[in-house]
Design a protein around this nucleic acid. Structure first.
Lengths: 355, 355
DNA sequence: CTGAAAGCGCTTACAG
DNA sequence: CTGAAAGCGCTTACAG
């Protein structure tokens, strides 16, 4: 691979000048610039990344960290991360956004059982300018270890209060959430307004930010409306398709069903839809379903799902923009940047209009 | 951030020795090693990545390139890459596998319209040791530009003959395919053996390796069996859900349907299933469906899909292993490594058993 | 406007 | 077994 020294020699200038041309500095006259550029072009020269970084330039790379359960946690699949709508699309959006802003993305999967050390390692190696972390439990204390390293990072889906309270001074940390509490409330209100009183809940994992918040929204509204939450109608799906099927089947076999379910994601709702149908229960005539995510298949099911859109792209954009701010500025008045993005309701046909 | 010089001073040794300890060289006595390790531990020291690479060490990073249509190509979604089962899971598997082998992954999305320059750039910057490229058209000539850079890379899904013929000598290139031609044949044979004579085909894009090969398998068997391929039964789904719905609806409205469809992926099959049902057509009683991928939802539809598994994890593992070989060895007798992985048939209920 | 020189933080022959 | 020194390929004050 050719280097700047040789380019300089060929172009008849010094390495300093080559460097100035590459970095597009103003203090080089058009003629010289052109001459150098021509040689660069001809030899297909690209400055060596490591040398650039070592001499003090930014890496122009962001680290994307996906924190996952252990590899085999979900027994059916060897690989399950991007199978998952949430992880897959967030990473997708993040890569897309950073790429289109001229940033590279270093994606790293962190298994919970391996702990934080890998994360700290890569942060300390100075391989990227800042990180975005998704998939953490809503109160995972790992965050504070990472904060010690000093590099800026942004969390997606984490408990705001807990974060603010425990973060050391002058941490460069951002947080982006979706308004799951509000969506949970709205889902419940929506069902009630359509005459439902017996409402069930098919949950994800409760250590998960979104499940927890949606659940809070659900119980708060149920209480406010003096409606009873029946234990039998709470199904722990844990975001697992086979588990959803097993648990829902049990409830069906018991002979007692609510008139509507709030389901913590579309995937589980799609499974629920089929399980109900197979048991001769009509959706939405007998049981209504309202869920979250708005995955692409959700509009093609029969009936199509009424669901809350998880604004993944918008959240990722926000997270990236915050990170860039944290990277570029050196000091902040504010301790952290926190944003919460709304989750619009997509009304389709899985909830009965009135009864 | 603390550096090796300071660690050396604190530990009372030279930087050379610190380096030896870090790289786990044999020629340092236990006592010294321990002493240095203790200081490293205490100060949470990690060698600077760029310095390491600049001084000749490997990056221990592989580049993962996902070649995509332009961002807005599929009108429905702003982001569509990992929404896609194939891309999402391949990238997932690749990241997972490389991470667990101690490699970092630099993921880059390349939009076709931006061309190859971005790819060449990052290859020439010496940011990684080798690359894996997915999403290329089956005969995209971009490959030969990349080969010029000289870094080893592995292609997933590409035309073997075309590649071998056009690759310059001593290119360090690998190729991993799935046996789509065989699967296309087997799908057709399977349907025929169950009494089907009128067989339709819902295709992906024909520039795509898998679609093309499956199609070849389909027509070859149909010809061999003296069965007619009716133009009206060929539906161009292009891997697009909305398009699949529109085009299939047209065929249904025409009043003439085959007794079975080979569908180029499960997503489209799921859409087809619903469209057929909505039009009062029973699956598999009236129309059978056989597809490809084996996505997680495929076993939860009603009926569950009979489908060929795309062995994504196995292919990714193969691709990674080939790449490591290419990186580590300096010379090869063989020009390229080529592998083709079988696609097992997962028999479920979307094909009628007999008629 | 431009070049010589120092420096970034490692690794690795080389010499002892 | 171990240290001094050169080198990797850039950038950036500094001097002119």
């Amino acid at each position: 691979m050719i280097n700047s020294k040789e380019i300089a020699k060929i172009a008849g200038v010094s390495r300093s000048t080559v460097s100035r041309v590459i970095n597009n500095y103003p203090n080089v006259p058009p003629h010289t610039k052109e001459k150098v550029l021509k040689v660069i072009q001809e030899y297909n020269y690209r400055p060596n990344f490591s040398a650039k970084v070592l001499s003090g330039k930014k890496t122009n790379t962001i680290g994307i960290f996906v924190v996952s359960l252990s590899p085999m946690a979900e027994n059916t699949f060897k690989v399950n991360l991007f199978q998952n709508f949430y992880f897959g699309n967030t990473v997708d959006a993040l890569i897309d956004i950073s790429n289109s802003s001229g940033y590279y993305s270093l994606v790293q999967i962190i298994y919970k059982k391996d702990g934080v050390s890998k994360l700290v390692d890569v942060f300390a190696e100075n391989r990227f300018d800042g990180g975005i972390i998704i998939g953490l439990d809503r109160k995972d204390p790992i965050v504070f270890d990472i904060a010690k390293v000093g590099l800026p990072f942004v969390l997606v889906h984490y408990d705001e209060e807990y974060l603010i309270k425990n973060l050391p001074q002058k941490s460069k940390v951002g947080l982006v959430n979706s308004m799951d509490y509000e969506a949970g409330m709205q889902a419940t209100e929506y069902l009630i307004s359509r005459g439902h009183k017996e409402i069930g809940f098919i949950s994800g994992r409760f250590t998960n930010y979104s499940t927890y918040e949606r659940w809070r929204g659900f119980i708060d509204v149920m209480k406010k409306r003096d409606l009873k939450i029946k234990k039998d109608y709470i199904i722990r799906g844990d975001y697992l398709l086979y588990k959803t099927k097993i648990e829902l089947t049990k409830v069906i076999k018991s002979g007692k069903l609510p008139t509507a379910f709030i389901v913590c994601n579309d995937d589980m709702a799609l499974v629920a839809l089929n399980v109900l149908k197979e048991n001769g229960i009509k959706v939405p005539d007998d049981v209504s379903l309202i869920s979250f995510d708005n995955i692409s298949l959700s509009e093609f099911s029969n009936p199509p799902l009424t669901t809350f859109k998880l604004p993944i792209y918008e959240m990722s954009e926000k997270a990236f923009n915050i990170l860039i701010k944290l990277i570029e500025a050196s000091k902040y008045q504010e301790k952290t940047f926190v944003y919460s993005m709304p989750m619009p309701l997509i009304t389709r046909e899985s909830v009965k209009e009135d009864r």
